[in-house]
Design a protein around this nucleic acid. Structure first.
Lengths: 140, 140
DNA sequence: TTCTATGCAAATATTTTGCAACTCT
DNA sequence: AGAGTTGCAAAATATTTGCATAGAA
């Protein structure tokens, strides 16, 4: 599946922290917390970074480069690249809390059935039991 | 339209704070932050309350009475009643707030693609512009 | 050069925890 | 009575802000 990345706005300076954070988000396979991003972007010597991470993320949000995601039942705020063509959806395991990306998005099909309603954004949340925990449960 | 509220688990004590918080969530038309809930539930004299609010919300989460939501706009974590098993989904118009029922539910199809993940609950939210507002907008 | 973003530290805001007193069942 | 909850205060986290300096255009 081809993922479409958002364009970098021409008015946005390409600073080192921004590019680094963008790269980290781009490679991520799941939404990241600010803390995780800070960790993934900091060099061995530097320490704090948090203010920059938050400022960059907020800037990205304003420019629609990223979106805040809600995975119900989780910790702090999570961020992910805003892949315009369709937002990624996730299924969360109620037992191990692991997040599984959902690769198919039903939005087209649904849109067709809506008779004139123009969908601007959508969100799908699944919650249940992942294959692994299910098997463990069966054995017990 | 009949809204189905989650059942109160028999093992959950019906304490005053819990019942109050549940009532507030039940009446809410949008997800609420912990701070907002604290405000809506506190009596004129009492002040802090936060620890109780968070503890109750976490208890509710464990019992699947509520779900956490976060909105791209910003802010902290938001909570709302988990109106389960209700297979009907809706699309909300961003302009007139009117709700359009979605007649098809894609959950089967998605479940099939998940390879072993057992879906216990799901939520689908659409937001956009309804046919009527879209036509009005075109004329302007 | 000029203007904005960064790094750092310090301020806020949010969420969690320990513990004695209190309430449901 | 007994188990589990609340209220309060204080701790731990998470997020934001002020300001001097560094960096991009």
């Amino acid at each position: 599946m081809k993922k479409h990345l958002p364009d970098w706005p021409k008015t946005l300076k390409r600073t080192k922290p921004r590019l680094k954070i963008f790269a980290v988000l781009e490679e991520a396979t799941e939404p990241l917390s600010a803390a995780r991003i800070a960790e993934l972007t900091k060099s061995p010597d530097k320490k704090s970074w948090y203010s920059t991470v938050y400022r960059v993320l907020n800037t990205f949000l304003e420019h629609d480069l990223v979106i805040k995601t809600s995975v119900s039942g989780s910790e702090a705020q999570l961020f992910e690249i805003n892949r315009k063509d369709h937002h990624q959806h996730y299924a969360r395991c109620e037992i191990c809390d692991q997040i599984t990306p959902i690769d198919i998005c039903p939005i087209e099909e649904i849109t067709d059935s809506l008779d004139g309603f123009r969908v601007m954004s959508h969100r799908l949340e699944l919650s249940g039991v992942c294959r692994h925990c299910d098997e463990v449960a069966k054995q017990a």
